[in-house]
């Protein structure tokens, strides 16, 4: 699924792209361009989590993704022109993404699956990038379950994420947090029931 050659837009080589513009309007369009770039980049590389420096974090998030090659380089730094975005500016872009609903801060409240978490200000926080909205994932899951005739059956999260049967599906190796968010959507729609372990950890899901 991964395509190593992500084609950056020409603005990626434009030095002022790495300086927060003082003009509010210009900054708006600048941050929009960044958000678009982040979403495209993550979608193509199937990156789920970005840390506060813009380095993809999928590797240590879950062992499921361990076989995946992930850049260790920050998306917000351009070696070629030797420019990088400041950390505060990255934080602002993250904040905007969260407000827009295209990302979520990685925090202990947001998911029960995430492990190592830093207690930090939002600026220093990593984000989960929703390059597809949880609603979209939910629809996809539902379609797949319907198609494979598993309505009413109980499925573990692992089955949804990494079993042989979902290998051809777009949500193959989906990030656990994103999966939980998608299941939440289904629960709200009344199409799913979540089975929890004693510790509150989700063990399985029943889609109806």
């Amino acid at each position: 699924m991964t395509d190593a050659d992500f084609k950056f837009p020409p603005i990626y080589n434009f030095p002022p792209f790495y300086t927060k513009q003082p003009n509010e309007t210009t900054w708006q369009s600048q941050s929009q361009q960044w958000i678009g770039l982040v979403l495209d980049y993550c979608k193509q590389k199937r990156i789920w989590v970005l840390n506060s420096d813009g380095v993809p974090l999928s590797k240590n998030d879950s062992e499921l993704d361990s076989d995946e090659e992930v850049d260790s380089l920050s998306l917000f730094a351009n070696e070629k022109i030797q420019r990088s975005l400041k950390r505060e500016t990255i934080g602002e872009i993250y904040a905007q993404m969260v407000t827009e609903g295209s990302a979520e801060y990685l925090s202990p409240v947001s998911t029960s699956l995430s492990r190592s978490l830093k207690k930090a200000t939002p600026q220093d926080q990593s984000i989960i990038v929703y390059w597809r909205k949880p609603e979209d994932w939910a629809t996809m899951l539902l379609e797949w379950v319907e198609k494979t005739g598993q309505l009413g059956g109980i499925l573990t999260l692992y089955e949804l994420q990494a079993s042989e049967s979902v290998k051809s599906q777009p949500f193959y190796k989906i990030n656990s947090t994103v999966l939980v968010r998608a299941l939440d959507v289904l629960v709200k729609m009344g199409r799913a029931q979540v089975l929890k372990e004693e510790g509150g950890k989700i063990s399985g899901v029943k889609i109806v």
Partner: peptide
């Protein structure tokens, strides 16, 4: 727009539009 770095501030045409 501007490009701020250690060696100074440089100006460019706005290409963010």
């Amino acid at each position: 727009v501007m490009d701020q770095q250690i060696s100074g501030t440089y100006y460019f045409v706005n290409k963010f539009d």
